[in-house]
Amino acid sequence: MTSETTHIATSAEHSENHGMSDAGYIRIAAILAAITALEVSTVYVDFGPLFLPALLIMMVVKFIMVVSYFMHLKFDNKLFSLMFYAGLVLAVGVYAAFLATFKFFIQ
């Protein structure tokens, strides 16, 4: 929301050229599938103390991959990222504080 955004003249069509090929999308999907398999394996294989952090990290990686590549946020105008991540960061911050008041994280 700075005044510089006024002068960024990337159109949707223009950024399309910096997008990905269909093969690229399939590669991303394969990686996502592999991570999902790894996630599911945590139910059957004992990850010990790594269990929770590993799951959360894999979740975040999948999330960001879909947003960046499938939703094109990585290649698109920064304003889109700003609108979306503003909502996301606010949601995480506010609801984490909300759960913290219930002592959710120190159970």
């Binding site: 955004t5 006024t6 990337t10 889109f80 609108m83 909502g87 996301l88 606010l90």
Partner: peptide
């Protein structure tokens, strides 16, 4: 900004959906 209204509106909406 040179970007489409609809797309900006969609991303704004998704920010809200978060």
């Amino acid at each position: 900004t040179g970007i489409s209204n609809v797309k900006l509106g969609m991303w704004t909406f998704l920010g809200s959906e978060c």
